[in-house]
Each structure stands twice: as structure tokens, then as C-alpha cells.
Design a protein around this nucleic acid. Structure first.
Lengths: 347, 347
DNA sequence: CTGAAAGCGCTTACAG
DNA sequence: CTGAAAGCGCTTACAG
């Protein structure tokens, strides 16, 4: 059984229907130049009637733009169970849709080998801008260098690239101050992968808060696994270490929620009560934080918002360019997105 | 400070460099027709020298294809902490890259409102094929109907659409038979959202195994929360119910790993030992299954492979079409991907 | 086996 | 304010 595919209508059809030149249709659909209200209406009606939508490929070819934005994230980050990066992606997708852009999501390996792993959209010059989410191999940036494509980083900083980052320091500080306010003075720090700027900043915030309170750091309470990523596996190792401290600290600030959940888990298994025996605070505010036992006090990060910001920011950066001839050498324009302490039952 | 952007080389440049017609360059880059080895080499060298890559937009416009595949998934599925769908996506991305396609990932809301939520790639006809991962609102399919674009479903079945699905029944059956083999006869079933075909099939598999063993179903052991999705929150409710059974079943088959982790958690909190007091089996084999306490026996689903298959399958379906004129009415071609029981310490 | 030419459906100066 | 025309960079019959 066969079925005919209705041919899509083109700008020509609309022009004929509205009895104008195709250039006029183009002006109307792109909201460019000035077209009289009367003509505009006629064109719009014709377009609607024929359910016309400009063909991407044609538009791209003649305009020299692609209408695509590359979204690059490490594959191991992308499939992490904390849905941090997928939420950022969701934010970019939302805002990109407003801008009528397509997002080309591409994952790259943790260890990036230049030619071999080059995203195809770079080779084919199929993007107008690029968003890099999270920490990626520096080798990737060497490749990006030559491309002359606007780039915005999210939750990562590198050279003079513009970035949308988290106020990690402020967030961590607020979290620890909250614990101090509750009367805790023996507060442990649980961390991993401190080479990640976002994570080391959280450590800084921790230290600042402790010092600001006139307390001093107790090295025995700084529990860091530098080789591991801050995920479940590492969290289990770290919480073992935490609970083998004697005496057990009365509170612990975890570098992210994933680690905090492990602490909750281990505490329960040891028959310890949270927050009475030990108060626990995380960072990120992933959905599960609301539902853990007990619900987790944590620092909320506005992930979707970061994605949205990155797109808007990219747009700005792109319109600054005289199309495809010259590029401003990018200056470091960094937007820091505020966090919010969410107090729940774990502290 | 300004920097000149190197203009990309075009097919013309390559033709000039190799001293052939541009059509010859086209034939070579597309591995089409027959070009003498000698000329081929010359063209290839020229292309390499100028680091030429055909521009997407131009190719698309003249060929009438877009080179894009739409990947549709519900946003709540996409951000679930079990990285099920992101792994499927990774599989499609991998295989799409082989086919030199781009994947346009788009999330749609759980409750789909036709015009309002229509993915832009549908309106702009910016995809050659579509992959739908997971259960989505039927309203979405009504829209897809008219588009005349090849579609493959993953982990979902609907009307006569082709699909790549999991052997849920076989997997569940194997899991339960494994428990029976270990001498369990009082096996509970933990499930949610049974309107999802994949999940109800797992229930069927459970029943089949029980019956095949000559046992009969004990309704008190069928613990289902039909309103909830099979995620952490629901799992906590379900495991409460499980452990309020008296006597506690000696084993439990959970509809997915997310629920199984909740059982492990609750068991630990109640001082019960897994698997001695209760054996636990899951389904999916998410990464965390290897690292839970104890590691989880579960049914492995080859997620990346499903994504790859879907792309290959889509390619087949696309080449069956006489380009953009006629479509075979799609017959139901369903590929069932086998599962594998992974026995770990929880059973 | 290779080349000349039309054409894909738009955008964009440039006239008027 | 609107139209005629060139051109974006390819692919694809069609000649030869």
C-alpha cells in the first residue's frame, strides 16, 4: 500500500498565494526590513494557509549561518545518575527553541584525542556557536581555538573563555554557616576530584566559613578522595572513612548531593540518627534530595537557568561578530549564578 | 584585537586544486558512481590539503535530505536518575556518527499538546527520520502520522510502528527462575506504572515463571503502585509495604533497579541481611547495581545496543523509500533485544 | 569515466 | 515599501 507524501510548500508558493515577490515573503518571515502591515498580513495568511515553514537547508545556505548550536559534554558526565548536566541541557534546549536554534548534543570521551574525537559538527562547520558543559580535556580547547566559533562554558572555566558558573564559594559558605549557626563546631568536609574548579571552590567556601567563625581547620576532618569523581562509588569509600573517625563529627558538609546520600545511607546502616547524631548537608539539590531519608539540606543550583543563560549569552557574543570576517578576541566574561540554601531535615 | 577567520574551502577550491570538475569531487566525496583510482587519489589529496569538508547546508539543499535524525524522549524520562534513556541516546549518537547523521534531541512533556509542543524539527521538516524513546503521549503520534517520516520506537510499542524492544518477558522469567532455583518459593513482586508495556511484560514473565514451577500466585505478595513511576519515591513507598508483610517474603523481584535499591536500603535500615533474610533481584542493570550494598542481581538490558539498532533500522527503512515521493505503509517490524541475567550478591 | 549545467529554496544587497 | 536577480555550495541527471 502506498501513500503520497504531500510536498511541502515553498516560499514561491506563498509568494504566489499572497501575490508578492518571494523577497517580501522572506522579509516577513524573518521580521526584517519594513513591510507594510497590509502586505504583512496577506503574507502571513498565505503562509498559514499553506502551512509554510522555511526550509532550514535553504535558509542556511543563503544566510551563511547554520542555526545549530553544539552542546559538548563528557559522556561520563552525561550518564551520571545525578541529573546535573541533563538539566543544564534542558535549559539550553528551552532557550534555544526560543531563538529557533537546534542543539547538537555531542558527548566526548574523558580523555580527548584531537583528530580522532573531533565532533563532526566542528569538521563540517555545522554550528554557529558552542556550549561546553562541565570539565573537559584541555586538548579539546586547542581544537576549538582555530575554529573561530563563539564558545560559552558552563560550570567550568578555562583561559579567557566566557562562562556561566555557579557561586560555589558563596553556596558552600552559606551551608557551613548554617551548620555553625546550629551550634556545630566539629564539622567534617567530604570531597572528591578537587582539581575541578567548581569543587575546589566549595572547599574554599567551607574553609572561609570555618575561619570566619574563629574556628580552625581540623585536618583529620578533611576527607578527600582526589582520584575519584564525586559519585556513588567514591561516596561509599568516603563515608566509610568518615564513620571510622573517632569521635564521629557532629556535622558533615559534602561537596555534592551524591556524596551526601552515601553518608545518609551509611549512617542509617550504623544505626546513627540524622541529624541528631550527625547533621548532613549536600550541594546541587538534585530531585532525590527532597525524598531521601531524611530529606537533605543542600545548596540549590539553578541548572536549567544556567543553560538558558548560556544560550542568551552565546547569542550576544554571536551578534557582536561582524559576520564571518573578524572576531573580537574573547574577553573573559563570566556570569556567576547565585545559589540558595535549602534547609531540610538532615541538619 | 582582531583575528581573521579562515574561510572554509569549497568544492570549487578542491576541483581547481585537483584540476577536475566539481561534479567529480562530489562523486568522490560521496563514494558514488565510478571515478578512476587515479582521479580519486588526486581529489582526495586536494581535499585533504585544503582540509575540505562539504558544507551541510549546501548538500542538504541539493540532495533534499537533511542529514538529521530527531530523537524524542519525555523530559521526565530524560532526567531520571536511572540513566536508561541517556544510554540509549549514546548508542544512537554513536551509530548516527557512523552514518554521518546528526541527532536532534528533543524532549517533550509527559502530557503532550499537539500544536503547542510540536518539535520544531517537525514543523521545519528538518529531519529525515525519527526515533522515539520510551513511552510518550499518544497525541504525539497523531501528529507524526501526517508527516510521512520514517519512525522507529525504542522500548515502546504503538500501532504499526517499527520498534526495538527489550525481551522483558524472557528477562523477568529468567530472574524469577533463578530465585526458584535457589530454593525460594515465597517470592514477592514489586512494580509500578503497569500501563507501560515493558513493565507489564515483566509482570507476565514473573507470573509465567511462578506457574511453570507449579506454584501459584499469592496476591498478598503482588505489591504494585500503579499511579507512580518506577522511581525512588515510589520505591520507598513500595518497600515499606513489602516489609510490612508478615512473614517477610524470602525473595523479591523488582520491576527495575531503582525499586530494588530502595528495597536494599530499607532492608539495611531494618537490620535485615540481603540475601540471607531476603533475596533481591532488579531489572535494567544500571551502573550503580554493581556498587550497591550488596551488589544487585539484575537483568541486564543492552541500552546502547538498542540505540544503535534503532539507527541501523531507521536507515534501512529510509532506503526502502523512493525518495520523498512514496512511502510503504509501515508494517510492524519489531526487533526484540535479548537480556542477560547478571547474578551478584543480592540473591 | 568525466564535465557542463540546471536546480535545490532561500537571503540579501541593490534598484526603483 | 516592494521586486528582480544574483548567489550560497552542493547534487544529480544528462551528455559525451
Amino acid at each position: 500500500m502506498f501513500r503520497t507524501v504531500t510536498k511541502c510548500s515553498t516560499i514561491k508558493d506563498v509568494a504566489a498565494e499572497a501575490d508578492v515577490a518571494i523577497s517580501t515573503v522572506s522579509l516577513v518571515t524573518n521580521r526584517k526590513g519594513y513591510v507594510s502591515p497590509k502586505t504583512t498580513t496577506r503574507v502571513l495568511q498565505a503562509a498559514r494557509k499553506l502551512s509554510y515553514s522555511p526550509r532550514r537547508a535553504a535558509r542556511n545556505l543563503s544566510s551563511g549561518r547554520t542555526g545549530n548550536i553544539g552542546f559538548v559534554v563528557r559522556s561520563d558526565h552525561f550518564t551520571r545518575s545525578e541529573t546535573f548536566y541533563s538539566r543544564i541541557f534542558l535549559g539550553t534546549e528551552f532557550e534555544a527553541d526560543n531563538q529557533r536554534w537546534y542543539i547538537l548534543l555531542t558527548t566526548i570521551p574523558k580523555e580527548y584525542v584531537p583528530i580522532e574525537h573531533t565532533p563532526r559538527f566542528l569538521r563540517e562547520r555545522n554550528v554557529d556557536g558552542i556550549i561546553v558543559a562541565g570539565k573537559v580535556d584541555p586538548a579539546f580547547f586547542t581544537e576549538l581555538e582555530g575554529a573561530g566559533i563563539p564558545v560559552i562554558l558552563i560550570d567550568f572555566e578555562m583561559d579567557a573563555y566566557s562562562a556561566v558558573v555557579i557561586d560555589n564559594l558563596g553556596g558552600a559558605r552559606a551551608a557551613v554557616e548554617h551548620l555553625l549557626d546550629r551550634g556545630h563546631s566539629d564539622i567534617a568536609f567530604l570531597g572528591a576530584d578537587m582539581s575541578h574548579p567548581s569543587l575546589s571552590e566549595r572547599f574554599e567556601g567551607f574553609q572561609l566559613a570555618i575561619h570566619a567563625a574563629g574556628e580552625s581547620l581540623n585536618p583529620a576532618r578533611i576527607i578527600i578522595e582526589d582520584k575519584g569523581e564525586p559519585v556513588y562509588k567514591t561516596g561509599m569509600v568516603l563515608s566509610e572513612r568518615l564513620f571510622s573517625c573517632y569521635p564521629t563529627p557532629t556535622a558533615v558538609f559534602c561537596i555534592n548531593d551524591a556524596l551526601a546520600f552515601c553518608v545518609l545511607d551509611q549512617a542509617a546502616r550504623r544505626g546513627l540518627h540524622v541529624p541528631d547524631d550527625i547533621a548532613v548537608v549536600g550541594f546541587d539539590d538534585v530531585p532525590r534530595a527532597e525524598q531521601s531519608h531524611p530529606p537533605l539540606t543542600t545548596v540549590r543550583v539553578y541548572k536549567e537557568q544556567m543553560g538558558e543563560l548560556a544560550i542568551r549569552y552565546l547569542k550576544e557574543q554571536m551578534s557582536d561578530l561582524s559576520p564571518s570576517q573578524l572576531l573580537y578576541d574573547r574577553g573573559s566574561h563570566t556570569v556567576k549564578v547565585p545559589t540558595e540554601l535549602i534547609v531540610r531535615a538532615s541538619s
